[in-house]
C-alpha cells in the first residue's frame, strides 16, 4: 500500500450523520415524536446564549468585591442577592455558565476522540485488545470523581487541567463502547463486501466502521457532557477544581456553603442552573438515543 493518501478517500461525500434533520418539512412532527430532544435542545441553547451574552445580561463585574453590600437578600438591584464578599450572585451565576459549558463540551469532545481512537485500536489490533481493555477496566474501577481529584492534586488548578483530568476519567467508557461496536461492525457482511470490492483499510474504517459508530457515540458524548459538568462542580465545590478566582457554579456553591442555613439563595441559584443544564443535556441524550436507535438503550 502506498504511503500517499489514496485518491478515492477524498472523492465521495461523507454520508449524512443523521438522516433525521433532513426531513425539514416535518419539523413539527419530529418535535412531536421526540419532545425530549426539543426541550433539551432549547434549554441547552438558552444556556449557551447566557454563556455567550453574559456581559450584556445586566451583569456587573462578577469578581468585584463590595464588602459594604455583603449577603444582601435577592432584590430588584441584586436579583440573586450578594455573597459574603458582596459579589453579585446573579452576575457570578451567569458568568459561571461559561465554565460549566466549556468543561462539559470540551470533555465530551476530548473523551470521545481519545476513547474512539483507543477503541478502534483495541477492536482492530487483536494483539493489543486484551492489554488495552484491561487497562481501561482498571481506570474504570476507580470512581471518576476520585480519579479526577487525584489528577488535580498532581497539577495546578486551572480550567484546562480540570478538562484534562475529567477527560481521562471519562474516556475509558467511550473506548469500551467503540471497541464493542467495532467488533460487531467488522463482522458485518457489508464490511466483508467492501473488502471483497477492494476497499483499503483506512477507507473501511472511515466509511464503514466510524460512520456507523457515530450515532451511539453522540449519545454517549451527551451523557459524558452531563457527567463532566457535575464532576467539575463537585471538584470546584471541594476546592480541587476551577481556581476560586474564576466564578464557576461549583465555586459559588462552595463559597455559599458556610452561610447555607442563613443565606440559602447563594447556593440555591447556581444549583438550579447546574441542575437545569445537566437535565437538559440528559434529555437531549435520551432523545437522541431513542431517535437514532431504540435498541441502543440496552447497550449504554
Amino acid at each position: 500500500m502506498s504511503a500517499t493518501t489514496p485518491q478515492h478517500l477524498a472523492a465521495p461525500a461523507l454520508p449524512a450523520i443523521l438522516p433525521v434533520p433532513k426531513e425539514r418539512g416535518r419539523f413539527a412532527g419530529f418535535i412531536y415524536r421526540h419532545p425530549t430532544i426539543f426541550v433539551g435542545g432549547v434549554l441547552i441553547g438558552l444556556m449557551i446564549l447566557i454563556a455567550l451574552l453574559a456581559p450584556y445580561l445586566g451583569t456587573k463585574d462578577p469578581t468585584a468585591l463590595a464588602p459594604s453590600k455583603r449577603t444582601r437578600e435577592p432584590s430588584a438591584l441584586y436579583w440573586f442577592g450578594t455573597d459574603m464578599l458582596g459579589r453579585d450572585v446573579y452576575s457570578r451565576t451567569m458568568y459561571g455558565s461559561r465554565v460549566s459549558l466549556a468543561v462539559g463540551f470540551s470533555v465530551a469532545v476530548c473523551a470521545s476522540v481519545l476513547g474512539t481512537f483507543i477503541g478502534l485500536v483495541a477492536g482492530f489490533v487483536r494483539v493489543l485488545d486484551a492489554v488495552v481493555m484491561r487497562a481501561m477496566d482498571g481506570l474504570m474501577s476507580i470512581p471518576p470523581i476520585l480519579l479526577a481529584i487525584a489528577l488535580m492534586a498532581l497539577t495546578r488548578a486551572s480550567v484546562q487541567n480540570v478538562i484534562v483530568a475529567i477527560s481521562i476519567a471519562e474516556f475509558p467508557r467511550v473506548s469500551r463502547l467503540v471497541r464493542g461496536l467495532v467488533l460487531s461492525l467488522r463482522e458485518q457482511p457489508y464490511v466483508e463486501a467492501a473488502i471483497a470490492s477492494g476497499t483499503r483499510v483506512p477507507a473501511i474504517i472511515w466509511k464503514h466502521i466510524l460512520s456507523n459508530t457515530l450515532a451511539p457515540l453522540m449519545v454517549q458524548a451527551t451523557f459524558i457532557c452531563a457527567s463532566a459538568m457535575i464532576t467539575e462542580a463537585t471538584l470546584s465545590f471541594i476546592g480541587a477544581g476551577t481556581p476560586p478566582t474564576i466564578p464557576s457554579w461549583g465555586n459559588i456553591m462552595a463559597e455559599g456553603r458556610a452561610l447555607w442555613q442563613v443565606k440559602p439563595y447563594i447556593v440555591f441559584f447556581p444549583a438550579i442552573f447546574l441542575s437545569i443544564t445537566v437535565l437538559a443535556v440528559n434529555l437531549l441524550g435520551d432523545g437522541l438515543r431513542d431517535a437514532l436507535d431504540p435498541r441502543l438503550a440496552k447497550r449504554l
Binding site: P15, A16, I17, P189, Y190, A193, A194, K207, S211
Partner: peptide, 10 residues
C-alpha cells in the same frame, strides 16, 4: 441477508 449486506449510512 439483504439488510446487513448494505451499509445503512451510504
Amino acid at each position: 441477508d439483504p439488510f446487513s449486506s448494505l451499509n445503512p449510512r451510504m
